[in-house]
Design a protein around this nucleic acid. Structure first.
Lengths: 234, 234
DNA sequence: GACTATTTTGATAAAATTTTAACAGACAGG
DNA sequence: CCTGTCTGTTAAAATTTTATCAAAATAGTC
């Protein structure tokens, strides 16, 4: 898990990237050009979450590698490294396929932040796509129907709004796990949402009013003090 | 454990550094230049926690060594020694990779303090990252569930606050080990916390109330007189 | 046994976090 | 338009946690 493939021909930059990603907790595989990158990808049976590719490389340029990788795995996260803004303009039309790009020179913080952000997106997307296979998720007396967007408690239908439904989806995908507000916020409202984190609390309250036997002493949506909430299953 | 690699070409300074680190309880390996440092690192199979590197050295300069070491072990602690502030400015852009730096001339106290601080950071970071892989830690009748943020004693749930939970995490990561207040303080409250060390005692008490069969004669959280506490497993 | 250092304990005040309720804009359906 | 629902914002109330303090108890030492 957290596997990254880095393709960059300049040794200095590659080392820089590899070091900083490793320090951030990623498991990095490095390649000195596009052809090698593709080879290493196949050798590892595509067991990567993210690829960081330089655009300008000998043997095979980053855009080609990007296209090839996308063919193999549509869900792979891809970040391109571009030298100048000009270069970016030239190829921007070809940038589709990449999820994000970072222009050189970049700071360690910037790189890691982008990769982290992409990783979160990927992880959430993966969770969502897993739920696509399921029709419904059961948990105790509750049944969340993903297809009909409905929630039943002991067979009794509970109407949920869009936001409420998504929170429940997140809960049901991680039963018993303590989820912090920031994670809930990102799952439901998305990465770039601007606004109060308190919105989570307010919606939790609304959910409790609908879901709990006694909203004043929650049994299902339990608060984890100083952290967030969890869907309790006991 | 507590192994340090010191690379410095000037004999006088090297001796100074080595003597003081050894007095502080570290196990020091010394090298007279960067190339030797790297060789000794590999010979010891990378069994070091921290490397102290002079920037200006013959054969191979400190920054290069730093980069090489980082490639081998992303979690290694690295402290750079720089001659003047000016020199630091020049290379500050290349400082990535180092965790800290000390400018010459420096006092024994300063050096040891920096190394100690870094060592603690490294140790805590390592412990935390190990716990990331685990879902729960068992110890006797107790199960600390890191995912659910819960503690169970013989299957019975015990509610813990944030601070209490972290203390338990520290205990469970070091069962049977006598932990001094200062270490507990740093793990739970962080390096730069300002306040009474007694706060540890108070929270230990609250934990005992929740965890012990008879809080007046603790069986699990045992006090080690003149030192601190330990999680007893017998 | 007396003395000192250290730890335990309980009370209380302060700080942090969560819950609750009320409000107002946006939006969709009639 | 009008109306009702959904949503995010805000502020006050309630709750929980946390820190500090000082007295009591305990362990260690001479």
């Amino acid at each position: 898990m957290k596997n990254i493939l880095v393709a960059e021909d300049e040794t200095a930059i590659r080392d820089f990237v590899v070091i900083n990603l490793e320090r951030a907790g990623y498991n990095v595989t490095e390649a000195e050009n596009g052809a090698v990158a593709l080879k290493k990808y196949d050798e590892a049976n595509g067991d990567f979450d993210i690829a960081v590719l330089d655009i300008m490389m000998p043997e095979m340029d980053g855009l080609t590698v990007c296209k090839e990788l996308r063919k193999r795995n549509g869900g792979l996260g891809i970040i391109m490294l571009t030298a100048k803004t000009q270069e970016m303009d030239k190829v921007s039309g070809l940038m589709h396929g990449a999820d994000d790009y970072v222009t050189k020179p970049f700071s360690p913080m910037e790189l890691v932040a982008r990769v982290d952000a992409l990783y979160r997106r990927i992880a959430i997307a993966e969770m969502r796509s897993e739920n696509n296979f399921k029709e419904e998720i059961k948990s105790g007396d509750f049944t969340l129907n993903l297809k009909h967007h409905s929630l039943k408690k002991n067979g009794k239908l509970i109407e949920l709004t869009q936001v409420e439904f998504q929170i429940m989806e997140y809960f049901f995908s991680n039963p018993g796990t303590a989820l912090d507000r920031s994670a809930i916020l990102k799952y439901v409202w998305g990465e770039q949402y601007v606004g109060e984190e308190k919105i989570v609390d307010v919606n939790i309250r609304r959910l409790r009013m609908k879901v709990e036997d006694n909203p004043s002493s929650p049994k299902y949506i339990v608060t984890v003090w100083g952290l967030g909430y969890k869907w309790d299953t006991n």
